[in-house]
Every structure is written in C-alpha cells, then in structure tokens.
C-alpha cells in the first residue's frame, strides 16, 4: 500500500488559523452538546408520551401512539431535512424568516434529533410501566393518591429502573445519531471528519482518530449510566444483578 502516513498534519494550521486537532476537538464539543441537549428533550418528551400511552384516557393513548408511529417510521435524515428545509416554508412567512435567519441551527438539530429519539424512549417508558404488576397502581390509588401521584411516587420510579439498560443504549445511540446533524449545518465531529478528509486526504489517520473519539463517547456514556444503574438499584429485584 503506497499510502503516505503522516500524523504530523494534526498539528498543522488549517486555513482558518486553527490547527486540525482543534477542529477535531471543536467537533467533539458540538457532538456532545447536540447529543446531550437532544437527550434531555427526548427523555422529557419521551416520558410524557410513554406515560400518556399507559393512562386510561383513550385520546391520550391515541396521541401517544400516533406520535410514535410517525416518528419511528421516517428516517432521521429526512426528519432533519423536514425541520430544516420544509417547516420554515409552511409556517407564516415572518416566522419562517425568523426560523431561517435568527434561530441557531443547533436548535433545529436538537428538535429533530430529540423528537426522533423521544418516540423510542416513549416505547421504553411504556413497556417499563406495563411491566409493573397492576397491583402497584391499585395500591397507590388505595392510599388516596390521584392517578398522577401513582405515576409520580409509585410507578415511574420503578419503571425507570426497569428500563435503564434500554435507556442506556438509547443514550449511546443518540451520540451516534448526532452524526447525521451535519446535514443541517452542525459543525460536529462527522462534519469535521469530512472536512479534514477534504483538506488533507489523510483518510486513515483521521478515520482512526474520529472512530476512537466516538468509541470513547459511547464508552463514557455507558459507564456513566452503569453507575447510575448501580446507585439506583432496588434490592431484591432480579433485574438488579450488576451494572454490566
């Protein structure tokens, strides 16, 4: 293979005055920011939707189900393009112009990635709640709790613990999926990966570095949540047998 290895180029100056390794670091920063913000959106909205789908109120269930069906059955890249290219043209003109000119791109990206992931989290939360014995709800109601209070104090604390492993893998997924947000103008790690390839053509070195970076992000996220899992384990449950 007559490939010309050159690790030095990471310390060369790119034409914006920064060095290439600084591009990688800045990409890493954006990836982390987009991912964590989207995760927050997804957890919040996903939990609400998941709870809605387990309530006795039929129209709440219907809304939750419809949401999950729509957001799970369209590819992420297309959802992002819809938010970026299509939505601003469909809203009133003033608002569209505001979305295009003043709204930071990261908001579009976080909305897109967050809403996409929320559908998956809603599925997990729903199955977590449904995995609990019915008696838990009845016990709560018997104690004089309202329906909402049975969620708040009885069912959700248990359900989250049950689905924590599944949520861990969603949290790792969100870091991987954030790579797609390059298509809506986020200068995250994959964007920088492409850009450095274009500038330097040192494909192998930059692939190794960026792959390791994603690997590290996934690993850190995994360990972090394993720690949470360990700390919140309920004694006596079979599911609490280790943070692996």
């Amino acid at each position: 293979m007559n490939y010309h290895w050159d690790w030095q180029f990471f310390f060369q100056e790119a034409d914006d005055g920064l060095k290439y390794y600084e591009w990688v670091i800045s990409g890493l920063g954006w990836t982390t920011a987009v991912s964590l913000a989207s995760l927050a959106v997804a957890l919040l909205l996903g939990s609400v939707l998941g709870v809605m789908r387990t309530t006795p109120t039929r129209w709440l269930v219907a809304i939750g189900d419809a949401y999950v069906d729509v957001f799970r059955n369209v590819p992420l890249i297309i959802q992002l393009f819809l938010w970026f290219f299509v939505v601003p043209e469909l809203v009133p003109e003033k608002m569209g112009i505001w979305m295009k000119q003043d709204l930071p791109y990261i908001v579009t990206a976080v909305v897109g990635l967050g809403l996409y992931t929320a559908a998956r989290i809603a599925e997990q939360v729903k199955s977590g709640i449904n995995a609990l014995p019915r008696g838990q709800r009845f016990a709560g109601l018997a104690l004089g709790f309202t329906e909402w209070q049975t969620y708040r104090y009885v069912r959700l604390p248990m359900a989250y613990r049950i689905v924590l492993p599944a949520l861990t893998s969603e949290a790792m997924n969100i870091f991987k999926n954030s790579a797609v947000t390059y298509a809506v103008g986020i200068l995250e790690l994959y964007f920088q990966y492409k850009q450095i390839i274009e500038k330097t053509s040192q494909v192998l070195e930059i692939t190794i570095v960026v792959t390791l970076a994603y690997f590290t992000l996934a690993f850190v996220m995994n360990r972090l949540l394993a720690f949470v899992e360990k700390r919140t384990r309920v004694p006596g449950l079979i599911s609490g047998t280790g943070g692996k």
Partner: peptide, 17 residues
C-alpha cells in the same frame, strides 16, 4: 454556514437563510 453541495448552498440564499 455550510451546504453539502453547490445547490445546497444556493438554496440557503434562495430561501433567505
């Protein structure tokens, strides 16, 4: 702001982005 190809970049101008 970055388009992935020239048409993309042009769309940014056309749409007022």
């Amino acid at each position: 702001i970055y388009g992935k190809d020239h048409a993309d970049s042009f769309l940014m101008v056309e749409s007022g982005r």
